[in-house]
Amino acid sequence: MSSATTAKPKKTVQKQTAVKGPTNVLIVGVGGQGVIMVSKILARLSQLQGLQVKQSEVHGMAKRGGSVFSHIRFGEEVWSPTIPMGEADVVLGLEWAEGLRWLRYLKPGVGTFISDTKRIVPPFSCRDRRHDARHGYAHHTIAEIVAQVPSAYAPDATGMATELGNERVANTILLGLLSTVMDFPVESWREVLAEFVPPKTLDTNLKAFEAGRAWTKQDHKPLVDDAATQAAPEPLLKREVKLEITESWCKSCDICVKMCPERCLALNDHQIVELVKPEACTGCRVCEWLCPDFAIAVHVSTVPINTISAEAAGEVQA
């Protein structure tokens, strides 16, 4: 064993001339939508133009329906693989709420925002058990976003793709749109596309690409938002739920306890059903309908909201 070596630490000198910063593209969506594939296409394109390129993603949870994002940076010199917040030249969303999530990464005033208006509503957004509850999904209308970002495109790419006969080419439509705001020659786009898509879908993909390019030439018409994004009216009435339990009819069969969606029933020390979490009860009537002995009756009444205290209103949450 010897430490003898003729090598020397590598000394270099920092360049004094400023190099133009890299172009930053952020591609975002939901697991399974093809974020990584779209990124690879863009990275390949950049490499073909003789540029340095780094593409970075974190996809540990991608298959489990989580949020997926991929940073692509290309230029003469690229160091960090990730894009600092507020420095993305383009945010490309394959899903609407994911596009919105990353909007703050866009260069204020100059960055381009492109997002499919497709909505993938996660089960987490449908958890609110309160009366007249709204989706937890993004409530901003497309018009609101488009008005605030100077360069914003919100096509219904998934809808357009379905019309072309393959929902999966939505990403290619978005790439077509992206190609109109970037400097790469359009022929390169088509070549790289051909490299990445399955050969038998190439025709549809090329059509989709052209559809995306054509879309920008149309007037930007804000789409009509669906009911889920409309603001719900303030509730004026509060519901009160009461369970009437006829103890002598209950035979401790446990059906209501097992089936209650809110898990708010239990058998007490006498093996008789009892409402143990009244605040969680939504009055869904499952217990009433399923009880083989008609031992439970659900009574729902409404009272004007201003007669209950704000504190009490807060307790209604499931």
Binding site: V30, G31, M61, K63, R64, G65, G66, S67, P84, M85, G86, A97, E98, L100, R101, L103, R104, L106, P108, P122, P123, F124, S125, G136, Y137, A138, H139, H140, E144, I145, Q148, V149
Partner: peptide
């Protein structure tokens, strides 16, 4: 220090990973 401006103020959608 970096200046950060939120282009649009909005509530972030919670999209945790879930069982398939």
């Amino acid at each position: 220090p970096r200046k950060t401006v939120d282009i649009v103020e909005f509530d972030q959608l919670v999209r945790p990973p879930v069982l398939c």
